[in-house]
């Protein structure tokens, strides 16, 4: 396949100058590349993936202010998770409930996972959740599922 001809070549040359300018002036931050590489280590391999089924921030009436809680719902085949996320200083407070209500162990996924045990109705609170992508791993009886990652 040839790479050149007439005006196309001029455009290709200019596009490539842009590419080199972007590499120089707006490259992918190295720290982000490292985080992406790390993601492989805490990926979910066998657990069921619960998809985002409700997001108060989706749609035209979306709001995300400091006083507003964001409400998220995740649904798997046998169980799901409802979350209410509020900003608390630089971090977040997450109030959640496993559905259908049942005793469960819930883990905030990430480099340093944090585990909490719910009450008999599947309710839990996690404070000081750092900003960044958020996902939970839940164990309800024999069922294990993880929620789809969301940006909060």
């Amino acid at each position: 396949m040839t790479c050149v001809n007439g005006d196309v070549n001029d455009d290709a040359e200019l596009e490539n100058a842009l590419r080199r300018a972007a590499e120089l002036l707006d490259p992918v931050p190295a720290s982000l590349m490292e985080v992406a590489v790390e993601a492989f280590r805490f990926r979910t391999v066998d657990a069921e993936l619960a998809a985002l089924t409700f997001d108060s921030m989706a749609g035209t009436a979306a709001v995300r202010g400091p006083a507003q809680a964001r409400v998220l719902g995740f649904g798997g085949q046998e169980a799901g998770l409802d979350l209410e996320i509020t900003a608390a200083g630089p971090s977040h407070r997450v109030v959640g409930q496993v559905t259908p209500p049942a005793h469960a162990v819930v883990e905030v996924r990430g480099d340093t996972p944090v585990s909490v045990t719910t009450d008999a109705l599947g309710r839990f609170i996690v404070d000081r959740v750092p900003p960044g992508p958020l996902s939970f791993r839940c164990r309800v009886g024999d069922v294990v599922f993880t929620t789809e990652w969301v940006t909060v």
Partner: peptide
């Protein structure tokens, strides 16, 4: 670089751009 370019093209502030980049890769891993 493709993911970063898509994020940059949407002109988010840096903190949001970084989060979206990470979320995107975390989702692919899962």
């Amino acid at each position: 670089p493709l993911v970063w370019s898509v994020v940059r093209s949407h002109r988010l502030i840096d903190a949001d751009a970084h989060e979206v980049f990470q979320t995107t890769w975390f989702r692919l891993a899962d």
